[in-house]
């Protein structure tokens, strides 16, 4: 009779975490940064049509690093959650906090109950109205959730990016141009190469826009900032 094998829960979790981290480390990185008029997101993404950054609701944006199919599913679920809530109650009742909590629950449950954890890390950002603070949440593959200030990074080189940004991000919010320059410099620094503008996916939650705050910044516009 074969012996039923035993793996301690500790060991199992450690193996899963290692597996997920390995998957995420293979992917490219994304930075979210607060600037004077909102929140900027910059992703190292050579594809012009497969997005890593996306609009969720009026003032909420999402970005995912790691396995595309997995964070794409999370993105869609987030949009459904937000639209349902906004339809059921009111548009102002849709918050990043509730969404980030949903993501945290989902990722945590999958991490502990499924054989394979999701190899993703995600960012949920919400731009506050004038005088109200922005919110920036980073959610890890195991469901742990971090409330970030100023800037946040996810993906393969996240730690190196954070070290780079911590030295250079000053107190007081930068202008859009300064924030963009800093983000691009950070991404170039950790990848040790010059990134072409077409290889960057840039989007912002712009407080000044009426209604839906999310907008993509195409290379034609970003080239002016980075000139």
């Amino acid at each position: 009779m074969p012996l039923p094998y035993y793996v301690s829960p500790e060991q199992m979790m450690q193996d899963k975490a290692e597996y997920a981290k390995k998957g995420i480390a293979k992917g490219r990185s994304i930075i979210a940064m607060e600037y004077a008029d909102g929140v900027l997101m910059v992703a190292d993404n050579p594809s012009a049509s497969l997005y890593k950054i996306s609009e969720i609701y009026d003032n909420i944006a999402f970005s995912g690093a790691g396995k595309y199919s997995e964070f794409e599913n999370l993105r869609k679920s987030g949009i459904r959650h937000a639209d349902l809530k906004g339809y059921m109650y009111s548009r102002e009742d849709v918050t990043a906090r509730s969404l980030a909590n949903g993501y945290s629950q989902a990722l945590g449950t999958i991490f502990s109950q499924e054989l394979k954890p999701l190899e993703v890390e995600i960012l949920v950002a919400q731009v506050g109205a004038q005088g109200v603070a922005n919110e920036l949440y980073r959610i890890s593959f195991d469901g742990s959730i971090f409330d970030e200030r100023g800037f946040a990074a996810i993906g393969g080189r996240a730690e190196a990016l954070l070290v780079f940004l911590k030295e250079r991000y000053k107190n007081g919010l930068p202008s859009l141009k300064d924030a963009l320059v800093l983000c691009v410099a950070a991404l170039e620094n950790v990848t040790n190469q010059k990134l072409p503008l077409e290889g960057l996916e840039i989007a912002a939650l712009d407080r000044g826009r009426p209604g839906r705050k999310f907008r993509r910044i195409a290379s034609a516009e970003s080239s002016q900032f980075l000139a």
Binding site: N73, K76, S77, R80, G102
Partner: peptide, 14 residues
């Protein structure tokens, strides 16, 4: 927790 399989229609999802 976050069901998926509804296509892109909010009407169908609802």
């Amino acid at each position: 927790l976050f069901p998926d399989n509804y296509g892109s229609s909010f009407f169908d999802y609802l």
